[in-house]
Write a protein that binds this DNA or RNA. Structure first.
Lengths: 231, 231
DNA sequence: ATATACTGTGTATTTTTAACACGAAGTTAG
DNA sequence: CTAACTTCGTGTTAAAAATACACAGTATAT
């Protein structure tokens, strides 16, 4: 059947690796494709870049069309251009990632009919993915794993108010290792980018923990002066 | 005159930021263009990706054609896709960088007529560049500056045998700051990736310094286990 | 032999990282 | 209401890494 599909000479596309954190698990957003090729397969949200839009703009637009998510800030991380990565011809794809607060429903409604639905999947248990999307995901995962070790970007994944234990278990999930509770808290509080709230979590069995908020202003101040080789 | 140039619907290209170190200065390789658009301008070595080659392959090929350099390992660092970055239409470019040992002549002979010549230019004093190449260079420079702070990649820029003072001044040039001599030496030797040679530099006025070699095997062993968030 | 210019080295201080355990607080169940 | 349970929240010590800092030694040139 593929023979009747149009052939591309050279086309750009965008693919998005969108991370979320829910039920103690790291998840990414996948769409169920409703078009050939790879119809009915799971895939990263992605589509073709239009003639008159920048890459960043295309990324935002495409993510919205396929998942309904609006105004998500994404960062480009790699471009995949193997000759045979797309069965219809030469398609080079620029990959973006984002980490977002996952508070809506598990299943999102695409705006276009190109995807049937968008669903959060735990990264530990992903289905088989279309194209080379498994490779793209893997590279994106490595990217955030590295990034989190030198920049506290994990807050974007948490609800606005969170406990230190939640923050720690997020780190543990991303880094795939256990961290020491006291050292972790000391270090995080030392950054000075957490606002301690006079509130405790609610609706938990057993003792409730104190809630914290992420302080954007202090974060910006701290990380505008990039990491430097010390004197 | 531009009206008679062909229009591109969508084309991929590669641009290369090739760093070298010579005469105490950090340099990059520029070509003098011999074709429209931007004929006679200085530009990063770059050209269009062909239909049947991967990005990595295209990068190596293009660098060779424009500068005569062979088998240079480059790393992709960003993709630039602003709508108007190329006057003839939509050209998305994937940027690569490399750090190489600069031991040949200052001027290199391109294989194609697309460039007239390729020349090493000090990064502190670059000419005006074609397209958005100034932006591409800048991003590449930031990339290596960050990378060098957590991975000793600077050796690739030095001759096979080098003194610690040479290594230090390379760091100082890239990071644009002075480093403490004793601390620098302590740290570098501590990595355990330098082989001390029983040789001294030659042809210098005043006391000659000891020469060192970079030990690839130990480097590989040290940096395969990536940086990790400590427990 | 003397001036010159760069080489090569050590210590003390501060900061960061690492290892490690238990009582207090709140919830549940009987 | 009390006992059992689960999670919270906290401090110290040791080791390692980063920083600040200065001068005598050695090869060369004249």
């Amino acid at each position: 059947m593929e023979a009747i599909l149009p052939k591309f000479d050279s086309v750009f596309s965008i693919d998005c690796v969108i991370f979320g954190f829910d039920e103690g698990e790291l998840k990414i957003l996948l769409i169920e494709r409703n078009e050939e090729p790879y119809k009915d397969w799971w895939a990263l949200p992605g589509y073709l870049v239009e003639q008159n839009e920048s890459l960043d703009h295309a990324a935002t637009r495409i993510l919205h069309e396929l998942t309904g998510l609006r105004d998500i800030y994404m960062e480009q991380f790699y471009t995949f251009g193997d000759v045979d990565r797309h069965p219809q011809g030469r398609v080079i794809t620029v990959a973006y990632y984002a980490m977002i607060r996952l508070n809506g429903p598990k299943e999102l409604k695409p705006v276009t009919s190109y995807a049937r639905k968008a669903v959060w999947y735990p990264v530990r248990d992903l289905p088989k993915l279309a194209f080379d999307h498994a490779k793209i995901f893997e590279k994106g995962f490595v990217k955030i794993r590295n990034k989190i070790t030198y920049q506290p970007i994990a807050f974007e994944l948490l609800p606005e108010k969170f406990t230190l234990t939640q923050l720690q278990s997020l780190y543990e999930v991303i880094l795939n290792k256990n961290l020491d509770k006291r050292n972790f808290r000391k270090k995080m509080l030392n950054y000075g980018i957490l606002k301690e709230l006079n509130e405790k979590q609610k609706g938990v069995s057993y003792r409730a923990a104190r809630l914290y908020k992420f302080d954007k202003r202090k974060y910006a101040k701290l990380f505008q002066k990039e990491l430097t080789f010390s004197k």
